[in-house]
């Protein structure tokens, strides 16, 4: 049933490492000179060593590569939006969609542990959205996203937002095949979040500092926060905005259009 990934076990996958048996110097526990002292008979116990040399996330990475190829062939810009819960991801999305939906084809994959509330908020703006409930899972993985693509069938040259589960830890490790991870941090969180969750800020290409309309009421040190983010990831780009008041949204929209254009050019 699964055409993209061949969910069922036993599907073919190429191993390009053929060195498993080439290093004969490896542990052969039963050839020690003092073997006579052991009680076990040679040949009875078949304990042996095997080389694996495989990334723990190799399977996810294969699915992610498939998704990336799918996006590439269709000129789709896929963005993986990550943040802690309550940073305003869904509000940023709905406001972005309202501003762009007459210009661009936009679709959304929503990841949450439970409920379809976020997908419903997105659909209310008039664009297609698919909810993935991860249950106890704390992140989306590339396999589930691949299946969501089968259902959602995003249009060529469209903008696909993947709103990950609110969590600044696990989604950093799970590639979904996106062009960029975009990390959203709201000013109601601490300015030291980039230091506390360095893996996520390191994995992201763009950071959005959201809810800037609340700055007058808070002790949030913007400069310090941006410096922490740069410290963890010297290449990160940063935009400050308020999805609620619209302040700073124009830069974000320009970034989206520019990235979509790059995606279209690369796979034209």
């Amino acid at each position: 049933m699964c055409g993209v990934c061949g969910c069922g076990e036993g599907h073919s996958h190429s191993h390009d490492h053929d060195h498993e048996h080439s290093d004969d110097h490896h542990h052969h526990d039963h050839e020690h000179e003092h073997e006579a002292a052991h009680t076990h008979a040679p040949g009875l116990s078949q304990t042996r060593m095997v080389q694996i040399e495989q990334d723990i996330l190799a399977k996810n990475n294969r699915y992610a590569a498939e998704n990336r190829r799918y996006f590439g062939e269709r000129g789709i810009l896929a963005l993986n939006l990550v943040s802690s819960p309550g940073s305003g991801k869904t509000t940023l999305l709905t406001e972005t969609i309202v501003l762009l939906k007459n210009e661009l084809d936009i679709m959304v994959i929503e990841g949450d542990q439970q409920t379809a509330r976020d997908a419903e908020r997105i659909r209310a703006t008039g664009v297609p959205a698919l909810q993935i409930n991860t249950g106890k899972g704390c992140h989306l993985d590339a396999h589930r996203v691949g299946h969501a693509l089968e259902t959602l069938q995003p249009l060529n040259h469209s903008l696909l937002f993947i709103e990950n589960v609110g969590n600044l830890v696990c989604p950093a490790s799970f590639d979904l095949g996106e062009a960029h991870k975009v990390v959203i941090l709201s000013v109601t969180e601490g300015e030291d979040k980039p230091l506390k969750y360095p893996d996520m800020f390191h994995a992201a290409d763009l950071m959005i500092l959201n809810k800037t309309d609340l700055l007058p009421y808070l002790d949030f040190d913007v400069e310090q926060c941006l410096q922490y983010a740069k410290q963890v990831n010297p290449r990160i780009k940063i935009l400050s905005l308020s999805a609620k008041t619209g302040e700073g949204m124009d830069s974000w929209l320009r970034w989206l259009k520019a990235e979509l254009e790059v995606q279209r050019i690369e796979y034209a």
Partner: peptide, 17 residues
């Protein structure tokens, strides 16, 4: 700084029977 080692998670080898 550009991290170039220490972010890996690999299964290296197994003892099996």
């Amino acid at each position: 700084l550009q991290v170039n080692s220490g972010d890996q998670m690999r299964i290296k080898e197994l003892e099996v029977e």
